[in-house]
Amino acid sequence: MSSGIVGMMLGASLFLGGIALVAFLWGLKSGQFDDEEKFLNAVQFDNDEDYRSAVEAEKKKQKLRAKKQAKEKNYKPE
């Protein structure tokens, strides 16, 4: 086995592992592991409808945020 192949294999596996680590860190940071009960219980109610409403909620949030920012800009004296 040449050292190049070993290097490639190491690189590929570390890259994949790195993706998993980043995903885990993201989950940790965004508070998905904060409530262990939720972790277990919320799964029961996971369905399409909830998924849709989660997307809608996200949209609503962004809309409100944009509105707020626009408003704040208007407040500023030119």
Binding site: D34, D35, E37, K38, N41, A42, K60, K61, R65
Partner: peptide, 8 residues
């Protein structure tokens, strides 16, 4: 915007 309830 957000309502988050802790199960515990």
């Amino acid at each position: 915007i957000e309502a988050n309830i802790n199960y515990t």
